[in-house]
Amino acid sequence: MVEKKVPHTASASEGNVHLHNHFGHLAFHDPLTGLPNRDLFVERMNRELARVRRYESGFALIMLDLDEFEAVNDANGHDAGDLVLCDVANHLASAVRDVDTVARTGGDEFAILLDGVTSKKEAEIVALKIIKSMSAPIRLGNGTQIKIGASAGIVLSPQDGYLAEQLMQCANQAMNVAKNNGKGLIGFSRNLQTAPKASQPSPPPPGSMILGISILDEQHKAMSNFIQGIIESLKNGDHSTKLLKRVELLVELCRIHFKTEEDMMQLYDIEGLDEHRTEHQVKLKNLRSIFGNLNFNEKELAKLTHDANEWLCEHIREQDTELVAQLKKKGVF
C-alpha cells in the first residue's frame, strides 16, 4: 500500500513543540560553537560510566586548553577570539568519530569523550592529531593570521575512576602539568604515567646471584632482599625515619660485602685490589645517591626500582663474576 502525502499545516501546538525543542537545545549546547556544553557532556559521561560498570568497557577523556588564547583577545578583540573558538570547534569535530563527543566546557577549554578507547596509546594518537591540526594559522576577516596551539590532558576509565567530575578534574590536572612544562604538550594521569608492571625492572633472578662461593652468594641474596624490602616500603607510602635507617643498614651490608671481596683478593693474591677498592667507594656513593631522596612520585619510583636492581646486577656481572673466575682459576674453590 502506498502511503499518501498529507499537506502539512502548522498548528499552535506544533509551534510550541518547536519552541520547546529550541530552548532545550540551547540549555545543553554552547551558543557560540554549537557544541554540547558541560552539562550535556557530564550527562553523556555518566551514561558511558554506567556502561563501563555493566559491560566492563571503557573510554578515554581528553581535556584541551588553548595556549595563549588571552593574547588573541587582547590583541585582536573578542570577535577574533570568537572566530578562533569556532574554528577550533570545527577542528575538534572533524578529528573524532561520530560516536565520540566534543564539548566546550569553559572559555577556551574543550573536552573530548572517546567512546570505547581503552588504551593510552590510542588516546594519545587522537590528541596528537588534534594538536597538530590546530597548528595551522587561522585567517581573520581582515586578512590577519593568528596562530594558536593547545595543551591536553588524558585519563582513561575505568583505570582512573568511575565518577565524571573526578575524571574531568584528573584530566584537568594532567593538562595543567603539560601546560606548565611547555606549550603543545600532552599530560597523563598518574596511573597512566606509571610504567606497566610487565616492563618494570625486576629483582635480579636467583640464578644470576649464584656464583658458586657460598659466602658471596648469601651476601648477594641478602643485599637483594634488603633492596626489595625498601622498595616495597616506598610503594606502600613509608617515608619515615626508620626507612632512612634501613637504607643506612643496606649501605653497611654492601660495605661488608665489598670488604669480603677485598679480603679474598688480598688473601689469595688476586690482582687489581686497589682498583676494586676505588670502585667499591664509587658504588657505595652511587647507592646512596639512588636512595638519596625518599619522596617519590610513581614515575620516579619506577626509575628508582630500575636503578637499584641494576646497581646490584651490574656489580655482580662486572666485578664478582670476574673475581670468582680468578679464584677458581687459582684452585681456591
Rank of each mutant, 00 (worst) to 15 (best):
L140M: 01
D115R: 13
T101L: 09
I148R: 05
T105L: 03
D100W: 03
E124V: 08
I148H: 04
H91G: 11
E109W: 00
T144D: 13
S119L: 14
A150C: 01
L92C: 13
S119N: 15
S94Q: 14
A103G: 00
L140W: 01
A136N: 10
V99Y: 13
V117H: 12
L114A: 08
H91V: 12
D98F: 10
L114Q: 08
L114I: 03
I148C: 03
M134A: 06
G106D: 07
I138D: 11
T144K: 07
S94R: 14
R97S: 06
L140Q: 01
E109I: 00
L114C: 07
R139W: 10
Q145D: 09
E122W: 14
G116S: 00
L114W: 04
D87G: 15
L85G: 04
V88N: 03
L140A: 01
N90R: 15
A136H: 12
D115L: 13
N142P: 00
I138Q: 07
V96F: 12
C86N: 09
Q145W: 09
A136P: 11
T105E: 02
A95E: 11
L92D: 07
I146R: 07
I112W: 03
K147Y: 06
L140P: 02
R104P: 12
G143V: 00
L113A: 05
L92R: 12
G143C: 03
T144H: 10
L113G: 03
R104K: 10
K132M: 14
G153Q: 07
A111N: 11
A111G: 14
V88M: 06
E122F: 12
T101W: 05
K132F: 11
A93W: 08
V88E: 05
G153N: 01
V88Y: 03
A103D: 00
T101F: 05
L85V: 08
A152P: 11
A89T: 05
G141R: 15
G107W: 08
D87W: 15
G149E: 03
T118E: 05
D100A: 04
L128K: 14
V96M: 09
F110Q: 05
R104E: 10
S135L: 09
A150L: 03
A150N: 03
A89N: 02
A103I: 02
L85R: 06
E122G: 08
I148F: 09
I125W: 15
E109V: 02
I148A: 04
D98H: 10
S94A: 14
I146Q: 05
I154H: 02
P137E: 11
K121M: 12
V96D: 07
V155I: 00
L92N: 10
L140E: 04
I138A: 05
Q145A: 10
L85H: 04
D115C: 13
K121G: 10
I125M: 15
D98C: 10
